[in-house]
């Protein structure tokens, strides 16, 4: 529905990709690790490889969790915006179709947080 207003109402979205100086937003939710209270919001270069994103962006963000060093990316499963997703490690985020404001969800089946409490 449109906004009820006293005159014609139009608006510009505040967070379109052109406002991020060549970068884009990406969110990652690590399931069963609620020690991190929410999904992370990252500013990423869409041309960086998925593998490089894991090494240089995701892993530093989770370094304080005791499970962080134990992740087996071979058995981890991913969702991209809620759909099953098989990442190609060497391809860029763009080539992996991870566009602006995408949400990645990672499940690490062997790891379920502190004392398996999902935290």
């Amino acid at each position: 529905m449109s906004v009820k207003a006293i005159s014609e109402y139009t608006a510009e979205p505040m967070d379109t990709v052109d406002k991020f100086h060549g970068m884009q937003l990406m969110y990652i939710y690590w399931k069963n690790h609620l020690m991190f209270c929410a999904s992370f919001a990252f500013l990423v270069d869409p041309e960086m490889s998925f593998e490089s994103m894991l090494t240089n962006t995701f892993l530093p963000a989770i370094k304080d969790h005791p499970d962080s060093g134990k992740i087996n990316f071979e058995s981890a499963t991913w969702l991209l915006n809620g759909n099953d997703f098989n990442a190609s490690m060497e391809l860029s985020l763009r080539e992996n179709k991870i566009d602006h404001k995408s949400l990645l969800t990672i499940t690490t089946p062997e790891l379920n947080g502190l004392n398996s409490s999902a935290t």
Partner: peptide
């Protein structure tokens, strides 16, 4: 949001504003 999307697409979200510089 779905009821009045035009209103909320303008939200000044602190995290996004920081990332926009």
């Amino acid at each position: 949001f779905n009821d009045e999307p035009e209103k909320y697409i303008q939200a000044w979200l602190p995290v996004h504003q920081i990332y926009q510089g």
